[in-house]
Design a protein around this nucleic acid. Sequence first.
DNA 1: TTGAAAGCGCTAACAG
DNA 2: CTGTTAGCGCTTTCAA
Lengths: 357, 357
Amino acid sequence: MAATMRDVAEAAGVSIATVSFVVNDSKRVAPATRRKIELAMAELGFRPNKVARALASRRTQIIALVYPALEHPMATAMDFLISASRAATAADHQLVVWLVSYDGNELAALVGQQLVDGVLLMEVQLDDPRVAVLQDLGIPFAVIGRTRDVAELCYVDIDFDTTMQVAMDHLAELGHTRIAFINGSQDDPGFASYGPWVRSEIAYRDLTAARGIDPVVLQSRQGVRAGRAAAAELIGTAPDTTAVIMAVETAAAGLVVELGRLGRPVPHNISVVTINGMPDIAASCNPPLTVVTAPGTELGRLGVEALLSQFDPNAPLRRELRTGELILGESTGPVLRAAAAAGRPAKGKARGVARGV
Amino acid sequence: MAATMRDVAEAAGVSIATVSFVVNDSKRVAPATRRKIELAMAELGFRPNKVARALASRRTQIIALVYPALEHPMATAMDFLISASRAATAADHQLVVWLVSYDGNELAALVGQQLVDGVLLMEVQLDDPRVAVLQDLGIPFAVIGRTRDVAELCYVDIDFDTTMQVAMDHLAELGHTRIAFINGSQDDPGFASYGPWVRSEIAYRDLTAARGIDPVVLQSRQGVRAGRAAAAELIGTAPDTTAVIMAVETAAAGLVVELGRLGRPVPHNISVVTINGMPDIAASCNPPLTVVTAPGTELGRLGVEALLSQFDPNAPLRRELRTGELILGESTGPVLRAAAAAGRPAKGKARGVARGV
DNA sequence: TTGAAAGCGCTAACAG
DNA sequence: CTGTTAGCGCTTTCAA
């Protein structure tokens, strides 16, 4: 069996308390004694037992990452997990993964096991039952995203305003003024009022209003097929559109393909920029997509840091918003003069077929 | 504070041991007493403290998922994690994530904390230092993948032979006899002798030999750009190829695009099937790729089950191989008669440009 | 500066 | 069937 503190204490000829002091560096210990103890520890290969430590100190140094994988799968989940785990490790904590739904009871049961010191909630909803549950339980927690009412809430989130602005600035610089927004669909189960979509749409409407652009908002569900449908709808309802901001990354490939098929090749006839997407997914499209990335990597770290900061009772409430970066692909280009001026689709069939050659 | 067993015992007028018996269902308890205790538990909202339980029973009911995210990122990691976590939950265990490299020391330090009962190793290498470390430590573990020497090893892995066979059968049925294999690159750091690639290539060579097919093996690194290069190399070195089995999913999009650009459109002129890929990635390509999927979902569950089975001292050593499924996309089609017969590329430019229309 | 001792909340013999 | 008791390995007063 592994050596215990008692073994070390005996080997070093000191008391178990003193060993504890040097292990945790929690009290001054005479250099000589410390040396004896360190020697004994090395010889015995002593490793403090986390479980015993947790029981005695009432701190497990474990935090839970709560991810509703079934209800809200997200492409960036792994990025997020990785950066969260790194941040936890850096602060001498471990991460357990809880794949629970939005049912607060399940979460409460897990918290009740007293296995974790805090909870990091992913994919929080505008009205999220889990938040109230955790507040009642009195366990420290931070959320990724924001509830509708944000009072007292410790959160980190994407800055959707800036994200939208980056996308729109990019298109504006290319001369676009007819910029549609394809948002996620309310019909998608579980996404009825999904914070990122709600906030993105508000940002889009604000920005178009401020710039005198006619807002055109469509909705698309997830997946390539839905993207194709969105393309058809877009051309049907707003044929003079020259650029699209796309919030549904999984549908972006379908959108682009179908636009080409409809004689509106990307980027020659219509520009497409996705928001809150992932670089590698954007890059693997044809043409590679211009994207404002989701800052998943940063949010994971920030979320953990915000959570851990709460263990310090007189630390201020942390809240952070972050914006991803604009990665230029080949799905955005200058506006077609003819289309922009006339408000009609360019005769694109021939060009469309020749795309990318 | 949360109610403890002592509180329950007092409230129910029994001893703490009896409470323990009903909580764990570990001994017969008279129905009447049990009822009293259950009532007291309900009233006090008692939740057994996992940490105390772990210390006393020497079982934490936590297992570690070890994922070398930096060295071996894998697209299916999240699928895997999710299914592993579900399996763990089903068996009343929790999952912690350890993002450690192949350096065994880091792993040994973590295990030494005695926080976990067992370890599940992802992305195991043919010669993996972590395996020896865990064996020395004497902690139960299972691996995903296989080391070169598999003696005594508890593993679950993809069945690369069957996977290759499924891909090749599919192509053979379409009339293909000139089937190249694009494997991962040895040059990719950390992938020098990567089990899946080594085993896939062996399978390819065996199968081509058995079927009288001239083997053509190229290597590609990760990413769209590498895929383009692979396409050029393929057409340069084996122009009469009519079908490709692609082991590098991240490069598949580039491969397909570049083949089209080189006048060898997919699938009209060349068929492409990826192996060990993910359905959604395959579907988001243009054209959607035919793929033999990686059974990530199944492997996560099996890995956890195999690991947990070791806690039963007289359970047999578990080993499992699984094959994904063939998902038909639009990247594979019947062999071109002209090309097959003449061993020359078809005049594909015109058709290539018209692909998918 | 060090040690003694009382827990942390629960499990598991062993008695009764 | 139930209670007593001795830990699990460590932290943390409180004395010395």
